[in-house]
Amino acid sequence: MKKILATLGLLTAITLPALAEAREVTITTELNAYRGDGAYLAIYVTDAAGKYQRTLHIAGGKSKYYKHLLDWARGSGGKASEYDGMTGASVSSGDSLTIKVDVDDALIDAGYLVRVDSAVEDQREHRIDAEAPLTTAGSGQAVVGKGYVKSLTVTL
């Protein structure tokens, strides 16, 4: 029941953004100082089961490399319609990326997660490099990443 409600809420968020209640969320991704070129990042929302919901931001200039953002590519099918207008430059080693996005209220405190997939040229990809809950309780708390991501902070 909760899931249906949530899905409904998400649908509303997508189809009627102007009418839906939304909140601005700040997401900060800080990278480790690794050796290599700038990292490609996919920042997206999944449900509690890890199923892809929507894309928040893609860092990286060349769409042909987006398939290396493995789980994001699986869930979104890599379709341009999923990320149109949400892309930016890749993030260099040691830098951090802060984005502000409007997230529908229905997604908050409803078991949804913000996830980061990452990839660097000539080096390995990381599925679920970092994952943080979209909860008021977890707001502002940094989560440690396991790959190129040093920490992920979601602030409501």
């Binding site: 042909k64 398939k67 590519a73 699986r74 869930g75 099918g77 890599g78």
Partner: peptide, 10 residues
């Protein structure tokens, strides 16, 4: 134009 690799669907 680059020929894109056709990807399998999840």
């Amino acid at each position: 134009t680059e020929a894109e690799e056709v990807e399998a669907l999840f």
